[in-house]
Design a protein around this nucleic acid. Structure first.
Lengths: 180, 180
DNA sequence: CATCCCATGTAAAAAGTTACATGATTTG
DNA sequence: CAAATCATGTAACTTTTTACATGGGATG
């Protein structure tokens, strides 16, 4: 159900299309929310039925028409209610790499280290990308309060990926220490 | 599909019941894998059909009977194949708190700080618990190679929760800096 | 000339959650 | 004496993913 609030939170910043919303999940929100375009479009449909959003159609020549969704006062009320009064359920994480790591005992130390090295590289790319986006997006630190959310979560993403990199270094070192 | 490999990885360590496996997800693996008992039992049934596991029934007086699952050679082969040769798909995270954080602009600075403080406390409890478990579980660092998985992922959990705590402190400070 | 970007949606399948169902023993 | 632990499972439901469907314009 919280995909609904994720979308309302984004629409509370500015009116947007489903495409825009999905794009934000895919790029900026990967550290804490994952979704697909089909889910976004479906939920937007339901939200409109429940009067949490309205939309205007923008007809475009050459490219497909757009539906620009706007949050309604009812939508805003429900968002704030959820934000403050509902307990945050514990995060649900599905990290395939760590499942692999938890089973390293079935492969050799060398193969395990190879997998960790690959993961390290992956996270180095992520840090770079997010840092770049953050630097370009925020001139002042901290930014004005209406951009606080993106600022806080971008920093979380960078810290998360950096922690992952440091853990990879540590893990490679620990694995290497174990005698054959 | 990777619940299957998560279970195979655990069974590769030692034969266990569905109850044991679920318990491990719930306690040690919360940082990177979430599941429910109904899903575990269902998947164990399917895995047995596919000859990846076998089970022995242990009849108990006073308490319910147990099914102790053991991984088969076929199961081990498939686990190793998956571990080494399949690419790790990017982690999928659903963190309700960070969804809230991304929408802090719709509530006051004070309310936002209250939410962050609560999250900080939550993660402090987690660090304590995991650190305790890790200290009790591993006498030597690094442990023998057949326990490397738990050792590595427990450390990941601790680092993750500590990173979260530090981010909370940073976030509270940044929010406070913003003028009204 | 292939692939990516824009832009929206539907259908089917898979994965995951919640509730129902049982019941003795242990702990606070 | 209420709640938690052990122990397994099914049924109904919700959520999520993958594939199908379309098509012009821009980029390399």
């Amino acid at each position: 159900m919280s995909i609904r609030y994720a979308l309302l939170g984004l629409l509370a910043k500015k009116p947007q299309t489903g495409y825009d919303l999905f794009h934000t999940f895919k790029t900026q929100h990967i550290y804490f929310w994952s979704s697909t375009h089909s889910q976004v479009y479906k939920e937007l449909g339901k939200m409109e039925e429940d009067d949490l959003t309205t939309f205007d159609v923008v007809y475009q020549e050459g490219s497909p028409n757009k539906k620009i969704y706007t949050i309604t006062p009812k939508g805003e009320r429900q968002l704030i209610q959820w934000l403050i009064h509902e307990e945050s359920k514990p995060a649900k994480i599905k990290d395939e790499f760590l499942i692999r790591a938890s089973a390293f005992h079935v492969i050799s130390k060398e193969e395990a280290i190879t997998l960790v090295r690959k993961m390290k590289k992956h996270n180095q790319n992520i840090v770079q990308g997010t840092q770049l986006w953050k630097d370009q997006s925020f001139q002042t630190a901290p930014p004005p309060y209406d951009h606080i959310g993106d600022y806080l979560t971008a920093e979380f993403g960078i810290r998360y990926a950096k922690m992952y990199i440091e853990w990879c270094d540590w893990a490679i070192n620990e694995i290497s220490k174990i005698p054959n």
